[in-house]
């Protein structure tokens, strides 16, 4: 039997191929192109091999910003995930308060990122900001523009304020999908609050929590706008996270080669961590 081969079908995938090409492949390849070459302007390029990669991987500066980035992401995950789950657990599951709570929770997510940064910057200013004045008023020597610890404190507080809602909403979605029968069965089986959380709620939230953690990991690892508006990476370099450092190298110093190499390393770190995490969670699921 002869199979009819109809090549016209390819036409249907052209739009998506074009979209992905312009959206992802071409920009990425441009970066790859810069990362292996040296340029002195005039659009002349010399082959540089893995020079930039070696330079970035061996630079103290990259190590420092990477370390800051890891500390930042680990801290906000350690706060936002348990806090988000805890808030979701206390939210009502039925009644008139449900929409109210949901809208209140969603509000921070609707604010443009640079506005979040600006808001918190003004909010935390020691002389005129509500938070800054209050903290100083009750006896703390708080000034996020001068003291690194204060800058970190403000940065983390801002992120927690901005993004815990996402964890809450996802966890809440997982919680409300648990049928009443599970709670009834638990009651009959004499399970206490902790046992219900451990054996019913947590397992049922596992999928959404995996997604929440992944999203929060990726977003926080790439955080730029809010942080740059709030602290600009300072005081000094104390809150210069990876993306801020990258922009400084690429657009501040115009070192395109190292910046491109750093972008790729940055990208691969995120990809690798996400993949490992997701695989581990899903493998558990199957067992």
């Amino acid at each position: 039997m002869n199979k009819t081969v109809n090549q016209k079908a390819w036409l249907f995938v052209v739009p998506v191929v074009l979209l992905v090409a312009f959206n992802a492949i071409i920009p990425l390849m441009t970066v790859v192109n810069y990362s292996v070459q040296e340029t002195f302007g005039d659009n002349t390029f010399f082959w540089a091999g893995v020079l930039w990669f070696e330079q970035v991987l061996n630079s103290e500066r990259f190590h420092d910003s990477l370390m800051r980035q890891i500390i930042f992401t680990a801290t906000i995950l350690a706060i936002e995930v348990p806090l988000g789950v805890a808030i979701a657990l206390t939210m009502p599951r039925k009644g008139v308060w449900v929409p109210v709570c949901l809208v209140l929770m969603a509000l921070p997510l609707l604010i443009p990122w640079n506005v979040v940064g600006a808001m918190w910057n003004i909010f935390a200013l020691p002389e005129i900001g509500l938070l800054g004045r209050m903290l100083n008023g009750i006896g703390f020597d708080y000034n996020f523009t001068r003291q690194p610890e204060d800058a970190w404190f403000t940065l983390i507080l801002m992120d927690v304020w901005h993004w815990t809602s996402l964890v809450v909403l996802l966890s809440y979605a997982g919680l409300v999908s648990i049928p009443d029968a599970y709670y009834q069965a638990a009651k009959i089986d004499g399970a206490g609050g902790w046992a219900i959380f451990r054996h019913i709620q947590l397992p049922k939230m596992k999928r959404v929590l995996t997604i929440a953690i992944l999203l929060r990991f990726m977003d926080s690892f790439m955080i730029y706008t809010e942080a740059v508006v709030l602290t600009g990476g300072g005081p000094g370099n104390s809150t210069t996270l990876l993306s801020i450092d990258l922009v400084k190298i690429a657009l501040g110093q115009f070192d395109l080669g190292p910046a491109a190499a750093m972008s790729l390393i940055y990208f691969l770190i995120i990809l690798l961590v996400s993949w490992v995490f997701y695989t581990l969670m899903m493998r558990n699921e199957q067992q």
Partner: peptide, 24 residues
């Protein structure tokens, strides 16, 4: 009580499921 849709504690083994009411 046995419900319309099976209620089991997914993450536990069958043994632990059966033991759950006793352990509680």
């Amino acid at each position: 009580q046995v419900f319309q849709f099976p209620v089991v504690y997914d993450t536990m083994t069958v043994y632990d499921n059966l033991a759950f009411p006793l352990r509680n």
